[in-house]
Design a protein around this nucleic acid. Structure first.
Lengths: 111, 111
DNA sequence: TTCCCGTACTACGGCTGCCGTAGTACGGTG
DNA sequence: CACCGTACTACGGCAGCCGTAGTACGGGAA
């Protein structure tokens, strides 16, 4: 189980990366995260919708309504061009952060 | 430059790992982080002291005062046995988080 | 001496982001 | 026709990192 504090700050990257290949809607995104993490991370609905709104406000996501197979309207989210750019930026930031924490975590002594 | 939001939640791991080989004091810890990150991450004094206090409250760090080479008293921090245990736990948590974010960030599509 | 600078802290409030809890709404299915 | 799955929204809580600011003290230089 992965806690909120550990993942905090990286949700946006995860969402952008998930939506990179094609648009999706909240419920599917949520299921995908659960499945692909092997159940290790369960994103809360509030967290997901809040994050999506935030990304939309920043102009990184667009949304459009469409009717699902079950006849219900759904809100699909897709990356904007800015979203694609920002995904690259966030990937770089993540790699830097990851390498930094790895470096320290792997027990380098104070010289 | 690595932002606070990116590193958030992993400061404790970094501090515990830095103090694993031997005790140190705030100023040295701060310098070490700056140096070892190549200047990419500059921990704020408030962040550092807050984190240290938190770890002490949790029983993961002990402190003792000693006189430095310059004649000034310093507060040294060292891991408690519980701190050593917790360091292992936090290392595991970090690896899980890292692998999860890596997995998503590397562009796995929604199937 | 006096003054500045490096070192060693503390105080306090702000903001962001994830969470807990809770509620609405609507359609299909048994 | 009652329930359940799906699709959201509302609202407040809290932790953690930051900005800013201040105190204190010793050593070196003018």
């Amino acid at each position: 189980m992965i806690g909120a504090d550990a993942i905090r700050g990286h949700i946006d990257l995860i969402l952008l990366a998930l939506l990179e290949p094609r648009p999706s809607y909240a419920y599917e995104i949520s299921k995908t995260i659960t499945d692909r993490s092997g159940g290790d991370y369960l994103i809360k609905q509030t967290t997901l919708y809040t994050a999506v709104k935030r990304l939309q406000t920043q102009g990184l996501l667009d949304s459009y309504d469409d009717v699902s197979e079950t006849g219900k309207p759904r809100t699909y989210y897709k990356l904007t061009p800015a979203g694609h750019e920002q995904l690259d930026v966030k990937r770089d930031e993540w790699r830097s952060t990851r390498d930094l924490v790895d470096h320290f975590a792997e027990g380098q002594a104070i010289p």
